[in-house]
């Protein structure tokens, strides 16, 4: 199995390290040619405006959209979740429009509001998952086809799945808990449909 990690800006090295711990071949992706032959793709945290600009270079965005139509599994964390969305409240970011969610950037405020919290994610088992939220977005609205995996309260969805697309507002790549990455690897494998 080969999973690409979009490496134009942000915490891509951390995702590569987490996937390698799961004994998955993980490769940085900076140009469209590097998307060939991938079974899955991770869009990491970083600055969504910055990543969005760099995705329009060399039509990397077009390449990702094409592969998503052919069922490429994609996981987006934080900025990556914003880029997966159908709609962003902020016109500065052009999302890829793949997942039926509407997101809000910097939903909790500036850096001094960034926080850690233990999360209940039933899909990962009973043990709480360490949630690291850094200038984090939230999912404001999700369509019927989207399964909520985690919410902080009734109106704040922070992790969701739509078939082969997986999104989190927090940063599993900054923790030692590999369950979220394992969940994605299982989606890539097709064993959790």
């Amino acid at each position: 199995m080969r999973i690409g990690v979009l490496a134009v800006q942000g915490a891509f090295a951390e995702h590569i390290a987490a996937l390698e711990k799961l004994e998955v071949e993980a490769l940085p992706v900076r140009l469209p040619a590097e998307l060939l032959g991938l079974d899955g793709l991770v869009i990491p945290g970083g600055e969504s405006t910055s990543i969005s600009r760099l995705l329009s270079d060399y039509d990397l965005a077009g390449g990702i959209k094409n592969l998503a139509e052919r069922d490429l599994a994609i996981m987006g964390t934080c900025a990556g979740m914003i880029l997966l969305a159908r709609e962003s409240a902020d016109p500065k970011v052009k999302p890829l429009g793949l997942m039926d969610i509407r997101v809000k950037r910097n939903a909790f405020g500036r850096q001094i509001e960034s926080f850690e919290a233990e999360l209940a994610i039933p899909a990962l088992g009973e043990k709480p998952f360490p949630g690291v939220f850094i200038r984090a977005p939230i999912i404001e609205q999700a369509s019927d086809g989207v399964e909520t995996l985690c919410q902080l309260d009734s109106s704040t969805i922070v992790a969701a799945r739509q078939e082969r697309l997986l999104a989190a507002a927090f940063h599993p790549e900054l923790t030692d808990d590999l369950r979220f990455h394992k969940y994605f690897v299982d989606i890539v494998n097709g064993s959790k449909s």
Binding site: Q9, G10, F12, E47, I112, S114, F115, I134, H171, L174
Partner: peptide, 20 residues
């Protein structure tokens, strides 16, 4: 919920990597 932790401080810098 805990703010101002070492993890969120160093974490923001990790999100800036590869950037200008």
């Amino acid at each position: 919920m805990e703010t101002g932790t070492w993890k969120v401080k160093t974490g923001l810098a990790q999100m800036l990597k590869g950037g200008v």
